[in-house]
Nucleic acid binder design. Structure first.
Lengths: 195, 195
DNA sequence: TGTGCCTGACTGACTGGTCAGTCAGCTTGT
DNA sequence: ACAAGCTGACTGACCAGTCAGTCAGGCACA
């Protein structure tokens, strides 16, 4: 199951160019050139431009979700678990800005209609991790009662926005401070009074 | 300053088609057909496809920001003001799903490099409304001290995410309930203990 | 060791289709 | 007759995807 070196190079180049220019502004020629391979070689490893794009997004999302799931399983305390998830979310966004941009650019799905269900599935799974933690917290009396779905969605949305702006250097606050601020905000928002 | 009827029709059609298919999947022919005008007419009123796209986004954003600014000016109480802004944010997202999708699709700017500064400007202005309310709240001793920039960014991100999912019917909760949940979450998150 | 055959990974010039933008000419009103 | 508003056939650029051809390196046989 060795991944050929050229395929790796193509993937790397594709991440770069796609994230810089977006899907439609990117040409296969650009990717091939950046990877230092012939155009034909790209089609040797990937069926189409779309396919290449998906290979990258899918791979990234799958990894993120799997990692987060493991993290979540290892921490029984809901409060701690949410803290860990938040920390990890921001860390990953910073580490993989390019890939994240690609996914965000995707924005509202719908045009990439066919292959998208899987992408949504990953999103749902990820969201479910937060929902589970929130619900446990509620039933354990740690958090005040709330609609855990909505809170999870808002939470993830907030994390994404902060992560993007951090990555774009539009926030001067340090990453650690950001994390702390968000944690405070969220925990104060859901914790039972007099915690 | 009469706006010609055909120009209106073109704008309307453009909003529809752009939001359905995204910028690149949309052709001027489609827009012209939907508007019931000739292709040339589109170029009579708009310099280019990009220009048309921007006219829509800019117009929308400018309206939203102006409206929110007026709303904010009319309410001196920071807590109330934030509540109003949140309510309005969700309401507008629901009312203008199509336009919102267009903007979101835009996602991370950067490819539309030239004309974008204005768009960012609007974003900054909008964010500033929340920041101002938060800071006032802190200095009045209503909210606990926090980094109002980060809180504002997270807040807007959360609102967008929830708004989008509401609009996409991926949330079963009613709009009013959503609003209430978010308000509780946020106010609890920033309020001084024992409010 | 040398030679000739083979294979398949790789290449890039080419094709076919798409679409933004143009412009010659039509229509309608005065 | 003229102008203003409008039209849609046309053009040129662009690009995804193809495929005929190249060539490095492996293998067999002497």
């Amino acid at each position: 199951m060795e991944i050929p070196e050229k395929k790796q190079r193509i993937l790397q180049a594709a991440v770069e160019v796609f994230s810089e220019n977006g899907f439609h502004q990117t040409t296969i020629d650009q990717i091939a050139e950046r990877a230092g391979v012939g155009k034909g070689t790209v089609y040797l490893y990937f069926e189409s431009k779309q396919n290449l794009f998906y290979a990258i997004i899918q791979g990234g999302l799958a990894l993120v979700v799997r990692g987060a799931t493991m993290l979540a399983q290892a921490e029984p305390n809901p409060k701690q678990r949410i803290a860990l998830l938040i920390e990890r979310h921001l860390a990953i966004m910073l580490k993989h800005v390019r890939r994240m941009k690609m996914i965000m650019q995707q924005g509202v799905p719908q045009q990439m209609h066919d292959l998208l269900p899987e992408m949504r599935q990953h999103g749902k799974e990820y969201q479910a991790l937060y929902v589970a933690a929130l619900e446990e917290g509620i039933s354990q009396g740690l958090f005040r009662p709330h609609d855990s779905n909505i809170v999870a969605i808002a939470l993830i949305g907030g994390l994404n926005q902060v992560g993007m702006q951090l990555a774009e250097h539009e926030i001067t606050t340090s990453v650690a401070d950001c994390q702390q601020q968000l944690m405070q905000l969220i925990l104060a928002g859901i914790e039972k009074e007099g915690n």
